[in-house]
């Protein structure tokens, strides 16, 4: 867990391998927040009736060459587990963020949702690969994945690969991925209401990230993130 004020303590490319999985014990509720971790490899196993909420945030104002690489593997190994993953990145200049999530429903009756939102400006590059597996024993699983990306410049790039593998038949699962630009109709509507284009774009982008930010329990951190977004934009 990191706080915003302490966001560049580790040099780039240090690997934080968790070869033995990190266990969320039965009945436990856990929130993990990763802010600007250059390289994260987490393998988490959830036991019965546990709830896990993970936030992955890429948001650096001054380190214009920052590179982030995150791999998050979560296994639901017992019944009635709940997993929520929220990721957001506002990448600018030459920043890069590459996120891989693996969510494995090994046992049925579980729930997982993933909301991953990226905004890329300048020459920034990002990628998201989401592997979602529902194994034959995992009947009555609910699993959702949404990846939304906004490109603010012609040079920015986002690669997105949602991958669903479903081997059980009684499940609810969906995924969606979109990459687009800011809504021109909304920008003009706001300009017609006295708001200049830059301010309108900031309002739209803060609203875009709000879906992720509002899920943080730490309200002070929420405020810090919004301020930081506004400074970067």
């Amino acid at each position: 867990m990191r706080s915003l004020t302490n966001n560049h303590p580790t040099p780039h490319y240090t690997m934080l391998h968790h070869t033995t999985p990190y266990i969320i014990s039965a009945g436990e509720t856990r929130e993990l927040v990763f802010i600007n971790e250059p390289s994260t490899h987490w393998h988490i196993v959830q036991e019965e009736n546990s709830a896990l909420r993970v936030h992955i945030i890429y948001l650096s104002e001054h380190d214009t060459n920052a590179q982030w690489q995150s791999t998050l593997t979560i296994e639901q190994n017992a019944a009635n587990c709940r997993t929520e993953i929220y990721a957001m990145g506002l990448l600018h200049e030459s920043q890069q963020a590459h996120l891989l999530t693996r969510v494995y429903h090994n046992i049925g009756g579980g729930y997982s949702s993933q909301i991953l939102k990226f905004v890329l400006d300048d020459q920034a590059k990002g990628s998201f690969r989401g592997e979602l597996k529902i194994l034959p024993n995992a009947q009555q699983t609910e699993a959702y994945q949404t990846n939304r990306n906004i490109l603010l410049s012609r040079q920015a790039e986002m690669l997105t690969e949602p991958q669903l593998e479903i081997y059980a038949d009684d499940v609810k699962a969906s995924h969606g991925a979109t990459t687009g630009q800011l809504d021109e109709a909304a920008l003009f509507y706001m300009q017609q209401r006295c708001i200049d284009r830059d301010t309108a774009a900031k309002l739209l982008l803060c609203a875009f990230f709000d879906e992720v930010i509002k899920t943080l329990t730490d309200t002070q951190l929420q405020e810090e993130l919004v301020e930081k977004i506004n400074r970067i934009l």
Binding site: F188, Q192, C194, L203, L204, A207, D210
Partner: peptide, 26 residues
Amino acid sequence: FLSFQYPVEIPGVSVVNFMRTAVNEK
């Protein structure tokens, strides 16, 4: 002021916040 034929939806921006910004810009 234009009252739009097809007013645009702006997800995540509340009417209050939108109007506070608009009124203060004016």
